[in-house]
């Protein structure tokens, strides 16, 4: 009997010991935050990214594998603003992990640190699956990434003080490279100013604001409701009066509606990565915007 207990204790030690010594476990809901954590933390973090650029983060199922990861997370980095409302609350509740509950240091929602656009005046689902806090797709503007990076770096320092200098140094380095990159992108984007576009879902307003693009129509009749043929016909009609230069869709979205409109209206359909991993070129945060701008510029050539 004693032997059995000894063995059990040993087993528990083996199971728990590595986690006590190990790096900070980061659970990133979306690839952009996983990539940002990688920029700021590097080797000091053990990062798990819950979704890929090919997935719609509104519609993720609370899979067993996600429970297992959240169970061990020290820091949760998500978009917030109800983007993950269909799955994250369940993961938080069922894993009983006190470190990452709302209000804890391990609970980090990026949209808490950016002023959101399109905050609905009327909360009514007749307007589709609207988010009460505003449009959550903030990562399409690099200035937002910079804002989030600043607070996230502070958070990492708070959570893991022994590596404070490491995080601060990496943040400085990232911040400098990011500023230079933004200047480069803004220069490249001059040609795009005033460009009229049609979008699949209302996921690009931060990009539109940043680059001065004009959104003429959306393929979804209401946010979250798939494009219907009647609505597409309306969009086509609208384009007769207010022509657009291209139709944009994210890598995870169904491409058929965009291609239908592309053919009928004679404008290019442009796939954009939307987040890291959306296209093979968008490998990290820098190449995400490089690729986004390249695709937009190629489409107006």
């Amino acid at each position: 009997m004693n032997n059995v207990i000894k063995r059990l204790v040993l087993m528990l030690i083996i199971v728990y010991a590595p986690s006590a010594m190990a790096k900070l476990n980061v659970f990133a809901c979306e690839p952009e935050w996983g990539a940002l954590a990688q920029e700021l933390g590097g080797n000091a973090l053990h990062i798990y990214t819950a979704t890929t650029g090919k997935q719609d983060s509104h519609h993720i199922q609370a899979r067993p594998s996600l429970f297992a990861k959240v169970r061990r997370a020290d820091l949760l980095i998500c978009t917030g603003a109800e983007l993950e409302i269909g799955w994250l609350p369940l993961l938080l509740r069922k894993t009983g992990n006190g470190r990452i509950q709302p209000g804890q240091l391990g609970y980090f929602m990026a949209t808490d640190y950016v002023r959101l656009r399109e905050k609905p005046r009327i909360l009514d689902r007749r307007g589709g699956d609207v988010h009460a806090a505003g449009n959550p797709h903030i990562q399409t503007d690099p200035h937002n990434i910079a804002r989030v990076a600043k607070v996230l770096a502070q958070r990492l320092v708070e959570l893991d003080a022994s590596n404070a200098a490491h995080y601060q140094k990496r943040y400085q380095d990232f911040s400098n490279r990011w500023k230079i990159a933004i200047q480069r992108w803004e220069k490249q984007a001059e040609a795009l100013k005033g460009l009229s576009i049609v979008v699949h879902h209302k996921s690009w307003i931060y990009l539109e604001h940043w680059l001065g693009l004009k959104e003429i129509a959306t393929l979804e009749p209401k946010p979250g409701i798939p494009p219907s043929s009647r609505h597409l016909a309306d969009v086509l009609k609208k384009l007769k009066h207010r022509p657009a230069k291209m139709v944009i869709y994210a890598a995870y979205q169904d491409s058929r509606p965009a291609y239908w409109l592309s053919q009928k209206a004679g404008i290019p359909a442009v796939i954009l990565p939307f987040t890291v991993g959306g296209t093979t070129e968008a490998r990290d945060l820098f190449t995400l915007f490089d690729d986004t701008l390249k695709r937009l510029r190629d489409a107006i050539k």
Partner: peptide, 17 residues
């Protein structure tokens, strides 16, 4: 405006209702 973004409301969206 930028400054306003930088000191953006902290954790306001964690509970909408």
């Amino acid at each position: 405006e930028e400054a306003a973004y930088d000191v953006a409301p902290s954790r306001q969206s964690s509970s909408a209702n």
